[in-house]
Design a protein around this nucleic acid. Structure first.
Length: 369
RNA sequence: GCGGAAUUGGUGAAGUGGUUAACACGGCGGAUUGUGGUUCCGUUAUGCAUCGGUUCGAUCCCGAUAUUCCGCC
């Protein structure tokens, strides 16, 4: 079956909702950890569940190259292959392609995108139909339309041309789509232009997807521009479908997104910074490599209920990183994912109690002080 | 006791009679937004064993001392 979204409550523009999938029902707003290569780096599915994780992301481009969608399909689909029975969303590969092309004028054609493999440099060609076919075979719960992620800054002319092409690609992908147990989301583009965001949103909605995402953000623009891109698009999205802000982000960006009506977020940040010794805390981000933690035997965040904070000290985690032990990255990945997921739990509670604005203000005041 | 060689940062070391002493590791700090798994970017010796001498100028040449290593009695 397709996913279902139920809007439970609105508080100004912020939304409290519920997402029903083939692999469980989960509350929104939610944060989705990224597991590009059919695994959230360093973590097992059990650890993800303990952190309260629901949907995780995987990636069409990466799984297409390794191990190949047919192998995943033979394994019984992505869930079985990676032993994760929660919901999985596959990104379409557009973002990866966008970073691998050499010349966007030449390599991006109406038919699809020419680019080189990041593994062996061989020439590859990805089309909207192929991206969808791969995702159909991977059998994720949610597939994404193949889009072009417009760089920032981009000229109006280029952004318009690209946005129109992404709309045509969305239609082609939808026509090629063939998996009754999978849902398809459309992606709003439009660059940093108000009228193009509106146009992209309206036209994408006309195609009637199971959910809508706002793409093309966090590509180097300033925060105000990013929030504008959300504002310009989200008001044209239907209330009875989930909204997903792709690739975002930092704690403050999650709060700003929720305030504007976003339901779902994903970001590599918690797991990537974890591998480089950084941890989110309620008092801001800290770097566990810092010498000041050498003899700090307190947990990373006293108020955190994650496995890492329950059992380990900053001094120990620092030791692991200094010694080059991968357990350090594992422990911080667990913590950072739990941090964002718990933050979402707190956000949902504040929405229930009509206290989101206060929660947001207090969180930001403390985190960014 | 005699003869020879060596001595450059926390470490391994390059180097030159002439403005800021290479590089690597380590240390310290930062970055990271639809993944970069061990990545990227800063920064880190006012000084070349010590004391004299030669020279306009010495880490570099000369002498003494100290330490280390090698050979001989």
């Amino acid at each position: 079956m397709k996913i279902k979204y139920e809007l439970i409550k609105e508080s100004n523009r912020a939304r409290l909702g519920k997402l029903v999938t083939n692999h469980g029902t989960f509350d929104t707003p939610m944060f989705m950890p990224v597991g590009t290569l059919a695994n959230v780096k360093l973590l097992t599915p059990e650890e993800l569940k303990e952190a309260g994780s629901a949907v995780i992301l995987s990636n069409t481009y990466h799984l297409w190259l390794r191990p190949g969608e047919d192998i995943v399909s033979k394994a019984g689909g992505l869930h079985k292959f990676m032993n994760y029975n929660g919901p999985i969303l596959t990104d379409c590969g557009g973002f990866q392609v966008f970073s691998l092309i050499k010349n966007k004028e030449k390599d991006i054609t109406e038919e699809g995108v020419h680019f080189k493999s990041h593994i062996d440099g061989r020439n590859l060609f990805l089309t909207p139909e192929l991206s969808i076919q791969i995702q159909n075979k991977l059998d994720s719960d949610i597939a994404m339309s193949f889009d072009e992620c417009i760089p920032f800054p981009a000229t109006y002319e280029y952004a318009k041309k690209s946005t129109e092409r992404t709309l045509r690609w969305a239609k082609r992908g939808k026509n090629a789509f063939n998996n009754d147990n999978q849902s398809l989301f459309g992606i709003v583009q439009g660059g940093a232009y108000k009228d193009l965001r509106k146009y992209s949103a309206l036209e994408t909605v006309k195609m009637d997807f199971e959910g809508y995402s706002i793409g093309g953000t966090s590509v180097g623009e300033d925060k105000e521009t990013m929030y504008n891109m959300v504002d310009w698009a989200i008001k044209y999205l239907p209330k009875d479908k989930p909204r997903y802000l792709m690739g975002v982000g930092e704690p403050i960006d999650l709060l700003e997104g929720i305030e504007r009506g976003v339901d779902m977020f994903d970001c590599v940040l918690p797991t990537r910074i974890a591998r480089h010794a950084n941890a989110f805390t309620l008092d801001g981000k800290i770097n566990l490599r810092n010498a000041k933690f050498k003899e700090d035997f307190s947990p990373i965040d006293k108020e955190c209920d994650c496995y890492t904070c329950k059992h380990y000290s900053k001094a120990y985690v620092r030791h692991l990183f200094v010694a080059g032990e991968s357990l350090g990255g594992r422990l911080l990945s667990i913590h950072n994912i739990r941090f964002l997921i718990k933050m979402m739990e707190n956000v949902r509670n504040s929405l229930k109690n009509d206290k989101f604005e206060e929660f947001k203000e207090l969180f930001i005041k403390r985190y960014y002080k």
